[in-house]
Design a protein around this nucleic acid. Structure first.
Lengths: 336, 336
DNA sequence: GCCGAGGCCGCATACGTATGCAAAAATCTG
DNA sequence: CAGATTTTTGCATACGTATGCGGCCTCGGC
């Protein structure tokens, strides 16, 4: 088996034209007559020719590859976002080059690795990111879009494009609804301390409480996982008086918390309310019927790739920070 | 902002050596003295040089890119498998180039697209695949590994490497356990009809029943989704006599079925047993405690990338079909 | 001090495609 | 139908790196 790759030169020879003609046939918008195009296409078809994107990328300086940094696909919210993102990118003719960062890991090292592939841009859905790394990406003309996260070092805002949900607004929504329904002792189950989303949700939670002259009725960290949420709820259950409501920084923890509360024989929402964040599919399952704050996944993804493309066509534009509304979906885990 | 990429030539000039020296410094196992290596590294560091993988791949004919075809990340089993696969690939110095195929879609078109990136191999975790496509990949020296699926056209076995769980064995295990516990009227909730896994689980289910002189107490399709499983269970509930047990082709459907049964006021496992397949995390949640067949995700992933690498270092080797054991994990959704 | 053996190095070329430029062909204009 | 204009074409070169080859240098052994 001869492992001959068929190149544009082979096609050219067979079609009786120049290599340029072949290239032009496969370059949309290039100047080729229909006659030659047909000849070339026929030859290409016969030989099974496929343009070599590496060689092409070497010249055009654009590969169609987009680095996508993800992590913790165990949280159902992420695969959903990711799937949407991947197919959106594909629709726009781009290909996601994956970078998986382990739970605690930082994305910097991996980012430098994918930069070698001359990617057109980077979308960060997980992991943190040092400002220096961002600067370097921008310096070599690779746009960066952060989704659902801030840049590691604060103050470096206006540097990269950003899209995320209105975390603060969501937390406020939850607190207002709970307070309006008469809850006073409201506890918080936090996600990973080192995340942007958690700090925003957390501090907005505190502020909203304060606005009503309230203090949190407990705070525990659940690391954004089901197990973590369960354990956090259990710790909260040791307090007395018991909290009347739990606001969880994401749904997965809320589900864990719900299971812990039930195991303890508590009636939800009769004796205690639970509110989550994200609105993952499981939240709607009859076994949970979780009241939660829905993130606009579609909007997030759309804005993310829009920002990326905008940046690609105008490298000089100033970074934009998109914040998307979050909606409270009332189900049956909170007395509202 | 001048968008000058720094190349090996720039580094060479600055380090006062030839471009070859730079290249050799970044090529493991090449012949360079420590002195020049240091000079080069220093210059590279100062300039922020990163080798261009495209140019490199053009020459070495190996990119480190592996096409990974995924789909339906809404089923929690997939992101788990996918995450494991991605990080395993990364550990071996390869990068997953993602191809997302829509639910019903075939992977062929997308595969041809990623082939243009001169990927080193393809791992198919979703989507189907025409034999012709496989042959073409092999013809140009791109190994293909199918995980959890067969090749579209049957009979083309020995063509590509394959790793999957022992679906038949799993179905048998489930039926034997159910029958041994005294169940007689056992129904089946099927996954997508066009999948390999579903046909294997289905026919082994029928055979196992037949071995005991039994017929299925109903069969409904649930398309591998939660909603599908729920609807299928509802249809099954219309039958009389009611089935005594439900064997579901995957966990997600089993959870949907469970919720449907409960909504109908049935006691599980008192009045009816439910067995799933996969062992996704939600199966262990106290709200479900689903008895199911666990797939060895880790083993699957390991074998998949092992097979890929084996093929890469010896293109002539004959295809291998790895089948991994599945284990019955007894929880509380089936009277066993 | 001489010779042989390696180890390093630089030169030149190749990988497969896109594209500016000028020539050629086709089309239009009056 | 000639000239002007546009479209199409081929030539040559560039993208950034890897690598075979021959030459240089170094070092050790005698």
């Amino acid at each position: 088996m001869v492992e001959r790759k068929v190149t544009s030169v082979d096609v050219a020879r067979r079609a009786g034209v120049s290599q340029s003609a072949v290239s032009r046939t496969f370059t949309p918008g290039a100047s080729v007559s229909v006659a030659t195009r047909e000849k070339v296409l026929a030859a290409a078809q016969a030989l099974g020719y496929r343009p070599n994107m590496l060689a092409r990328g070497l010249i055009t300086r654009t590969t169609g590859l987009v680095g996508v940094v993800v992590g913790d696909l165990g949280n159902p919210y992420h695969p959903i976002l990711f799937e949407s993102l991947a197919s959106r990118l594909q629709d726009r003719g781009k290909r996601p080059l994956l970078v998986h960062v382990p739970p605690q890991g930082t994305a910097d090292a991996a980012v430098f690795e994918v930069l070698q592939y001359q990617i057109d841009g980077i979308i960060l859905v997980a992991g943190s990111f040092a400002e220096a790394t961002a600067r370097e990406c921008l310096a070599i003309g690779t746009p960066v879009v952060l989704v659902g996260r801030g840049i590691g070092d604060e103050g470096a805002e206006k540097l990269v494009d950003t899209v995320s949900s209105d975390n603060a607004g969501g937390a406020r929504l939850a607190v207002e609804a709970l307070v309006a329904a008469g809850h006073r002792r409201i506890a918080f189950i936090a996600g990973r301390r080192d995340t942007h989303s958690n700090s925003e949700r957390h501090s907005a939670f505190l502020q909203a409480l304060a606005r009503h002259g309230l203090e949190p009725a407990g705070e525990e960290e659940g690391s954004y996982s089901y197990e973590g949420g369960r354990a956090a709820a259990q710790r909260l259950l040791a307090r007395s008086p018991l909290p009347e409501a739990l606001f969880c920084a994401n749904d997965l923890m809320a589900l864990g918390a719900l299971d812990a509360l039930r195991a303890a024989g508590l009636d939800v929402p009769g004796e205690i309310s639970v509110v989550g964040f994200d609105d993952i599919p499981m939240a709607a399952w009859p076994a949970y019927e979780l009241t939660t704050l829905r993130q606009d996944v579609d909007g997030i993804v759309t804005h993310a790739v829009d920002l990326l493309e905008a940046r690609l066509s105008d490298h000089g534009r100033t970074a934009e920070q998109v914040i998307l509304d979050v909606t409270l979906v009332k189900r049956n885990s909170a007395r509202l």
